[in-house]
Design a protein around this nucleic acid. Structure first.
Lengths: 227, 227
DNA sequence: CAAGCGATAGTCAACGTTGAATAAAAAGTA
DNA sequence: TACTTTTTATTCAACGTTGACTATCGCTTG
């Protein structure tokens, strides 16, 4: 994906000279593994690919003691051009967003009206919880004393605000559609309803919300003294 | 991605017995290449993988004349179990949505306040146009005479409605943030503004909206007689 | 009637992604 | 002090994705 490549190129450009692990740490502090689905293995591959493509160059390969060698990179002129080019191509264009939920939702009629409604209400609850975390996060970012600065750039805060509003929308949608499902207005096959126990069974197998502590740790960097 | 696998499994389950090309055609009629980012190559691979995993089985391999042989599939008991299992796992759980725009947006400060504002307004315009197409689409689905039926299932219509509302939200966000960017409230570096010409240059290189005809053809199946 | 084009039906090599493995130092803990 | 866990730093084989390719049939169009 271009997202992986742009993210790496942009981070090297910003932090240069850097080695892979530092890029990785920065990405982790951005929580990018979540919202950009980028994994460690891809970062190292990306750095090597960008290098063979002439967008990055190796600054040094230092070895301290017996630890693994660290290779440092910096962007070349070609890399800078590609960065500017791709950044604008992606910002000025539009691209459909894939919400994996709606892939599964295509087959929602299989659930039948009762389970579908229960599922949607469960979803509303989960998303509401996430939304609250976002709101708390934005609260901290807002009220962080402006001198020390809350290290969360304004444009990132705005992105978070949009995400939060989108969640609110989704929650309302879930509740509205749950009602429609129950009322048989979506044409779901009534025969296939599942018992309360089945639903409880599935509910138990669901991954819970990401640990609030995880989220907070990614925040720590900016608000350490805030507690 | 699990989306590819579930989509294929679900479609074979629904259309069985089917061969690859028919699954492909169905996916195309769903416009799935857009909203699920699934490509032909992946479909054939997916069918083979699901077969070696014991979720599908080959019904027949018929050869008509000298045309390429068509392999037909049907789901096994194991496949049915996996379908039910995965479907619920994904519907009852939540998973972060990746909006590639926000990957690029991370580097928005590079644009400077002027280009950022112009970019956001351009984005608002593009998304507004898409939104109008969605609204027109929903209009047709709504007013399609209920006897012949508009062949667009209620739950799909609802999904489209949410997507449309999310677009409205995004458009407002773009316009609001454009103003903030211009007012220097986002801390973008002022030095890096780009001239009108540069902006015009980039604008010219941007992919335009998907051809309305494409969208309409995916609709044809349901509303052929509507024109 | 030949040429061209789209639909039919699928294969495959090249590429990107990812989980797992490696391995040593530093930090925590009993 | 001895033990375990975490952090540092990266490699790699296995797997999934994708664009490009093959090849035939049927339909239109000049």
């Amino acid at each position: 994906m271009w997202t992986t490549r742009l993210l790496i190129l942009g981070l090297v450009r910003w932090l240069q000279p850097v080695h892979g692990y530092d890029v990785l740490k920065e990405l982790t502090s951005w929580n990018a593994e979540d919202w950009a689905k980028i994994k460690p293995g891809s970062v190292y591959h990306g750095l090597k690919k960008l290098t063979t493509d002439g967008c990055l160059e190796v600054v040094s390969t230092e070895q301290v003691d017996k630890r693994p060698a660290r290779t440092s990179y910096r962007v070349t002129a070609k890399g800078e051009t590609e960065f500017q080019q791709v950044l604008r191509e992606k910002l000025w264009g539009i691209e459909p967003v894939v919400d994996p939920f709606f892939v599964a939702w295509s087959f929602a009629p299989v659930l039948g009206p009762r389970e579908a409604a229960a599922m949607l209400r469960n979803r509303a609850a989960l998303i509401t919880a996430q939304m609250r975390q976002n709101l708390a996060w934005l609260d901290v970012a807002d009220s962080g004393d402006p001198t020390a600065g809350s290290f969360i750039p304004g444009h990132v805060q705005e992105a978070m605000r949009l995400a939060t509003d989108a969640m609110r929308l989704t929650v309302d949608w879930c509740e509205r559609v749950a009602v429609r499902a129950e009322n048989g207005e979506l044409g779901f096959d009534d025969e296939r309803g599942y018992s309360e126990e089945t639903i409880e069974h599935w509910r138990r197998h669901i991954r819970t919300l990401p640990d609030p502590a995880t989220l907070r740790s990614s925040l720590r960097r900016g608000v350490d003294e805030g507690e």
